[in-house]
Simulated assay, not measured.
Amino acid sequence: MPSFTLRFLCAATVVLGFSGQAFAHAHLKSSVPADNSSVAAPSELDLTFSEELNIKFSGAKVTALDGKEVKLGDIMLMDGRKILMVPFAGTLAPGVYEVDWHVLSTDGHKTNGTYTFTVTP
């Protein structure tokens, strides 16, 4: 009986380990500009995710500290559809900006988040 219990526990561990991968979501791995960074005015955001994205249901909104939304260009996917590239339509003025992103991974899971960065004079 102990041998059966041990085999059952091993099998359950393997199944649960693989099911965790099946329920994975696209997590933000890195961003340029980075969270809480101070940078010269960037021309784009590069948001790198852990999984491939569906561009039709992915995007970002960038807002200045005064609440004004920043005009953005057309987003693109790069590097195996794991990097969401969001170009700015113009030059960012010095100040604090909030990035509010949302993505849909190709496996159908939605994730979102926010972070801030500062543009230096």
Rank of each mutant, 00 (worst) to 15 (best):
M1F: 13
P2D: 12
S3Q: 11
T5W: 04
R7K: 09
A11E: 03
A12D: 06
T13R: 05
T13N: 08
T13Q: 08
V14P: 07
L16M: 15
G20L: 14
Q21K: 07
Q21L: 15
A22N: 13
F23H: 14
A24I: 06
A26Y: 02
A26C: 04
A26M: 05
A26L: 04
L28V: 05
L28E: 05
K29F: 01
S31Q: 08
S31K: 03
S31G: 11
V32D: 12
V32H: 08
A34C: 06
D35H: 08
N36M: 03
S38H: 06
A41R: 08
A41V: 08
S43A: 11
L45Q: 10
D46S: 14
L47H: 11
T48Q: 13
F49A: 02
F49W: 02
S50N: 02
E51R: 14
E51W: 01
E51Q: 13
E52T: 10
L53P: 05
N54I: 06
N54A: 12
I55P: 13
F57Y: 14
G59W: 06
K61H: 11
K61C: 03
K61R: 15
K61T: 15
V62S: 13
T63H: 04
L65E: 14
K68T: 15
E69F: 03
V70W: 05
D74C: 00
M76Q: 14
M76D: 09
M76E: 13
D79S: 11
D79V: 02
D79H: 07
R81L: 12
I83R: 15
V86W: 06
V86K: 06
V86C: 08
P87T: 01
F88M: 04
A89R: 09
G90W: 01
G90E: 14
L92R: 02
Y97N: 05
E98S: 12
E98W: 02
W101C: 01
V103C: 09
S105R: 08
T106F: 08
G108E: 08
G108V: 10
G108D: 10
T111I: 00
T111H: 04
N112T: 03
G113M: 04
T114A: 10
F117T: 00
P121Q: 13
P121E: 14
